[in-house]
Amino acid sequence: MTPGPSLLKATKVGCRMIEIYHLYKQYSRDVVALRDINLVIDRGEFAFIVGSSGAGKSTLLKLFLQEIKPSRGSIKIFGRDLSRLKSREVPYLRRNIGMVFQDFRLLEDRNVYENVSFSMRVTGVPIREIRKRVPLTLELVGLKDKAFKKPDELSGGEKQRICLARAIINRPAMVIADEPTGNLDPVTAMEILNLLHEINIRGTTVIVATHAQELVDRMKKRVIVLDQGRIISDQERGVYINAR
């Protein structure tokens, strides 16, 4: 099973990872999660999406993954208009996006190696390729010696490294991390962010949704601030701006 040809081509040609114009997302009459969002993220960027809880971060990430559909406006990922994406193409879109979650979402009954190779196996990558790539990726995230440990034998930071390895093993064009440091102490959190930075330097676009102000300020990256569903600030080498 190879990635959808159309998506692959779009990834190679376009330099825009994400293009969003006049996007609205309304869950019900009274709940408007996003209002008039305009946002362009280019290939190779590292961007933070920040804001207090309920600001619309999660909704935005769900839209990227095509988990939900916008109420109005357009959203393009890898140059592909998501409103024209057929539901059977969604898996191929997701193969180009590595996801990292706050709660790790690891399979507790499988060891590190199996957790990381899982995303290759279920996308039909040959075993030979898996054997070659998993050790390299584990080395990159610093888990080379813990390949055969189960997640519950590891610390929070190590768990998040597994999650990172799983996200990048299929060499996606983009990694999206949803509160990746939410469950970690500040030192470990910084390590994870540095790792994400390293992944970014190797050419992968990285988007991190967070409300960890101090960490965002230290990274000196692009910061997009959401408040009550609107983008209130979008600055290169920016800092976390508190809306209230």
Binding site: I97, R105, S119, T123, R166, N170
Partner: peptide, 11 residues
């Protein structure tokens, strides 16, 4: 997780 890493429904 399978859904997130892009496994097809039939897979």
């Amino acid at each position: 997780i399978m859904k997130y890493v892009g496994a097809t429904d039939w897979f």
